[in-house]
Amino acid sequence: MRINDYYLEEQALHAQLELLQKRMGPAGLPKSSLGDSVGGGGEVNIMEQFHQLTELKSNIFDLKEKAVECELDVMRCIFNISNPKYRAVLTERYINRRDIYAISLIYKSLGMPNNSINYIKRLLRKAEEAFYEKNLK
């Protein structure tokens, strides 16, 4: 799985967690315990709700651990590259999840002479080639 896949799955689990918390509100009340206009709980018994809540929180924690492990693996691979410019652009793109435009703005704010989007694209392409050559051969 890719790192972003873990984060997307985590967001989906958070949405399930919020829905479960809304359903856990007191039965018969017009609003849930979270103040939404969704009706209160009573649909599922309290032990089942607690079990679902605990399971979702555990799944979220596991996904966060997997995402961090993936990021650490990617960072180890990035730091196998000897060129510091390549390491910097790969870190910004794949660890910090910045797009080409955001990276060019960072370069501009640092006073780097080459900060055009085309330069960043070329640099990223060369960095990716170095990454694959160093880590995947």
Rank of each mutant, 00 (worst) to 15 (best):
R23C: 05
G25N: 08
Y101T: 04
L124Y: 06
Y7K: 12
I117T: 09
E48N: 06
S82Y: 14
Q16W: 07
M1T: 04
G39Y: 14
S109I: 03
A130H: 05
I81E: 09
Y94K: 09
G35P: 03
A12L: 08
N96E: 13
D36L: 09
S32N: 15
K137F: 06
I120H: 02
D62C: 04
A102N: 06
I120W: 03
L63W: 04
S104H: 08
Q52N: 07
L19S: 02
G39N: 09
N4I: 13
Y107T: 00
V74L: 15
L123K: 03
L20P: 00
A12D: 10
M75D: 03
N115K: 13
E48P: 00
S58A: 13
R23M: 12
K134W: 02
R93I: 02
V74E: 12
S58K: 15
G111A: 04
N83F: 09
F50V: 06
A12Q: 12
Q21V: 04
K126S: 07
K31D: 03
A88I: 01
L136H: 08
D36S: 13
L124G: 00
I103S: 02
Q11L: 06
Y86A: 08
N118S: 06
G25H: 11
S104Y: 10
I106P: 00
L123E: 03
N45C: 05
C70S: 14
E48Y: 06
E92D: 08
I46P: 01
M1Q: 10
K66S: 06
C70T: 04
E55R: 14
L63D: 01
G42Y: 08
I46M: 06
S116K: 13
M47H: 07
E10L: 09
F79W: 13
I117E: 14
E10G: 00
D62S: 11
S104C: 06
R97K: 12
Y119L: 02
T54G: 07
Y107A: 10
Y101L: 08
K31W: 09
K134N: 04
Y94R: 12
L123D: 02
D99K: 15
V44K: 07
F131N: 03
S33R: 13
D99V: 09
Y6K: 10
Y132D: 03
L90W: 11
K22G: 00
L72Q: 09
R98I: 02
L53W: 15
E133S: 05
S37M: 15
N96P: 00
G35V: 11
N4Q: 14
T91G: 00
V68N: 08
L13D: 03
I95S: 05
Y7R: 12
K121P: 00
Y6H: 10
N114S: 09
